[in-house]
Amino acid sequence: MRHHVDHRHDRVLELVRERGSIRVTELAAELGVSPVTLRRDVDMLANQGKVQRMHGAVVWPGEAARAEQPDTGGRVIGMIVPTTRYIFGDVVSGARRVVEAQGGRLVLGVSGYVDSEDPVQAEHLLNSGAEGLLVAPSWFVGAPAGGQEEWLMSCEAPTVLVERTAQAANPAALLDRVRTDRAHGAALAVSHFASLGHRSVAAVLQEGPHAAGITSGYLDSVRSLGLETVPGSPCVRMSGQEYDEVAEYLVEAVGRHGVTAALVHSDEDAIVLVPRLQARGIAVPEDLALIAYEDEVANLADVPLTAVAPPKQAVGELAAKLLLQRLAERSAGREPEPRQHVDLLPKLRVRASCGALRASSGTE
C-alpha cells in the first residue's frame, strides 16, 4: 500500500513540475483518484515543501504567479442546507461572512429536505473544489436514523454538523457540531409564563427536526416549575394538518383544562392561529398568552408576538470558524484538537402577545 502512495506522490510531483500549476480536480481525474484523496496527498507534499497549495490548485515552488486563482484567493467551503428559508437564511449568511473574511468562498448546496440528496450535493461540492463541509442533513427528527449518517462517516473531508445532532452511540456523534439549544429556548418561554403567574401552559409544535428539543425543554420546565400538566400537550402539528384542528385543540385546552398560555412553534403557525382563536372567542393575550418560537416574522404579527429567538447567524459563524480551524490543522499536519459539540442559547424577545412588555431575566 505504501508503494502505491509513494508512486502516486511521485506522479503528482512529475505533473506539477511539468505544468507549473494544475487544478486539484483535474489532477485527481488524471490520476484516477477521488478529489478528497488527492487533496490529502497535496497537503502532505505541501507540508514537506515539495509543492505549494493555492486556492483549488497545486503549484510548483516558485511558480505561484502562474497558478489559476479565483478572486477570493482562499479556501472553498461547501455548505449543505435543506432550505434557504426559515432559520437557514441567517445561518448561511453567518457562515458566508466568516469564510469571506478569511478570503475564501462559500458554495451552497440545497437538499430540499430529501435525505438521498445530501450525499449527491456533498459529492458535487467536493468534486468542484470544496475542501470541507458544513452540513445540516435532512434528518427528519434532527438526528440520524436507519443509517442516514453512513455517507457522512465515509466522507474524508472535514465536516461540521449545523443545527443537527446525533445520539451518543451513533458514529456521527464523533463529528464536530454547532447548534441552537432548543430545549433551553422552550424552558425560557415556560419560565417567562410562570413569572407572569400562568400555572397551565400548553405547547403546539411543528413536526420536524426541532420538535424533540423543544418538547424536552417544555416538559422539563413544566415539571421543574411545578406547573399543571396539560392533557395532550405538546400538540404536534403534522405536515398538512388543518390549522382549524389545532385551533380547536387550544380552545378545548382553555375551556376544559384552564390553560392560559401557550408556546407555538413557529412564528407562521402562531400568526395563522391568532385570528382563528379570536373567531372562537379566545382573545390574545387576554384569554391566552402566546409565545412563538423562531422570531423570523414574529414582530410583524397584528398582535406582535413574544418569541424565542435562536442565534441563527452566530450558529453559522461558529460552525464556519470551527471548520476553518480543522482545515488549518490538517494543512499544517498538526494533531487536531478535541472534537467540539457547541450549543448556543436562544434569547426571549418580549412583545405584546404574552401580556407583558417588561423585560425579564434572560430576555432582550
Results as ranks from 00 to 15, higher is better:
175 L>C: 10
208 G>Q: 10
230 V>H: 01
247 A>I: 02
188 L>S: 02
221 S>L: 10
190 V>E: 01
238 M>N: 11
213 G>D: 09
246 V>M: 01
244 D>H: 15
150 E>Y: 00
176 D>L: 09
150 E>G: 08
237 R>V: 01
160 V>Y: 14
261 A>C: 09
181 D>Q: 04
146 G>T: 11
244 D>M: 12
148 Q>Y: 03
159 T>I: 15
204 V>K: 02
164 R>I: 09
176 D>C: 10
237 R>P: 02
242 E>G: 00
259 V>I: 04
186 A>G: 00
255 G>C: 06
187 A>T: 13
190 V>W: 02
186 A>D: 00
131 E>A: 11
217 G>K: 00
249 Y>S: 05
166 A>C: 13
151 W>S: 07
169 A>P: 06
221 S>F: 06
198 H>M: 08
184 H>E: 14
144 P>F: 00
251 V>Y: 00
225 L>R: 01
215 T>N: 03
213 G>R: 10
259 V>N: 03
163 E>M: 06
228 E>G: 06
236 V>C: 03
191 S>T: 11
133 L>V: 11
237 R>E: 02
169 A>M: 14
261 A>N: 06
153 M>Q: 12
204 V>T: 03
241 Q>G: 01
240 G>A: 04
251 V>R: 04
175 L>H: 10
195 S>P: 13
180 T>S: 13
190 V>A: 00
200 S>R: 14
172 A>T: 12
168 A>G: 11
221 S>A: 14
251 V>P: 01
213 G>P: 12
139 W>I: 15
204 V>M: 01
241 Q>C: 00
195 S>M: 13
207 E>Q: 13
143 A>V: 14
223 R>K: 06
177 R>C: 15
250 L>P: 03
138 S>G: 09
144 P>K: 00
170 N>L: 08
188 L>R: 06
184 H>Y: 15
146 G>A: 10
206 Q>Y: 07
168 A>D: 15
152 L>W: 12
224 S>T: 13
260 T>P: 08
224 S>M: 07
222 V>D: 04
159 T>K: 12
218 Y>R: 07
138 S>C: 07
230 V>N: 02
229 T>R: 14
224 S>E: 15
231 P>T: 03
175 L>E: 08
